[in-house]
């Protein structure tokens, strides 16, 4: 599963990545996380609040660390 996390190196962005990795390891789903930190690129994805998460081309979350529950539903 291709996951993109957008956000410029703040602690919340790191927390989001760690959360996704943890949930993926728990459910055994293979994932491939890509980080986008350039603000212009972030905007061109249609995202204005970070951290944001894009899964298979769809924005599933924007602004703040997602809940663990939300992450586990995306991974299904």
């Amino acid at each position: 599963m291709d996951i993109i996390v957008l956000g410029k190196g703040c602690s919340r962005c790191e927390a989001t990545i760690q959360l996704i990795e943890r949930e993926a390891a728990k459910s055994g789903v293979p994932i491939n996380i890509k980080k986008i930190t350039d603000e212009v690129e972030i905007i061109q994805h249609g995202v204005m609040t970070t951290p944001a998460v894009i899964i298979d081309g769809k924005i599933v979350h924007s602004g703040g660390v997602p809940s663990a529950q939300a992450v586990s539903t995306w991974l299904k």
């Binding site: 410029k8 962005c13 603000e39 204005m48 609040t49 970070t50």
Partner: peptide
């Protein structure tokens, strides 16, 4: 909003 969103928000 988180201050790390300042630039995307501005643009």
């Amino acid at each position: 909003f988180c201050s790390c969103s300042s630039v995307p928000l501005f643009i």
